[in-house]
């Protein structure tokens, strides 16, 4: 097996070590493929499907987990890809809270930024939250939890377990009631959480936010 492979992404060729993901290969070319669940600091898991690209296969492929193959021809911005992303965004926005705590304070809600970029201003779908699931958890003195804003991207879970190795966070429930949970699904402030804040730092949405920023709206000055 060869040590490197060559692929063509949006008409441009790149040679990368075998095993490199399409997302990383695109980044080498300066092509940003949108993501919600993926972060270069983390093991890719391919759960949000926002990074799907067209490799000519029957299904669109999640670029963060799909390894490059020799001679692969990839489109990251075909109509099919864009339509797919719009649909995903519309589904994710269906029950998304307005305002999002992240957008309101630091203005860097990644879901809302993508929705704006793809022109998704409203959703044809209705939310399906079960009423018995408590929406907010304010038991931690430092981190606010809003399950309504959670898109189950698992960044927090990987941040907790695979970056900080604290092994507090997991998923609980199933189907539409699946949600992030702490220990055996106890409130965050009563769990073994050590408040390192990694989950809050990596969360792309308003699900896990810094309580100290509540009521503030940051407008960052240009950094020289």
């Amino acid at each position: 097996m060869s040590d490197s492979v060559s692929v063509t992404i949006d008409g441009r060729s790149v040679t990368v070590p075998a095993g490199t993901s399409l997302w990383d290969a695109a980044r080498e070319l300066g092509i940003d493929i949108p993501v919600l669940c993926h972060s270069p600091r983390m093991r890719p898991v391919g759960v949000c499907r926002m990074c799907v690209v067209d490799t000519g296969a029957r299904n669109l492929q999640a670029a963060c987990v799909r390894p490059c193959e020799e001679g692969m021809e990839v489109r990251t911005d075909s109509d099919r890809v864009v339509r797919n992303r719009r649909m995903l965004l519309e589904l994710l926005m269906a029950d998304y809270p307005d305002p999002s705590a992240r957008e309101a304070s630091t203005g860097d809600d990644e879901l809302l930024a993508l929705a704006r970029a793809y022109g998704v201003t409203s959703s044809r779908f209705e939310g399906s939250r079960t009423p018995e699931a408590p929406r907010r958890d304010a038991s931690s003195p430092v981190i606010a939890v809003d399950h309504q804003a959670c898109i189950l991207c698992d960044r927090c879970i990987r941040g907790c377990n695979e970056l900080q190795h604290n092994h507090v966070m997991t998923r609980s429930g199933k189907g539409a009631t699946t949600r992030i949970a702490f220990d055996l699904d106890v409130p965050m402030g009563e769990s073994t959480c050590v408040s390192c804040g990694e989950c809050q730092a990596v969360c792309p949405t308003g699900a896990l936010t810094n309580r100290a920023l509540e009521g503030l709206h940051l407008v960052e000055e240009e950094t020289p």
Partner: peptide
């Protein structure tokens, strides 16, 4: 909105 606008610099 009752939010306080903060002009923020990153150091």
């Amino acid at each position: 909105m009752t939010d306080t606008n903060v002009s923020a610099r990153v150091v």
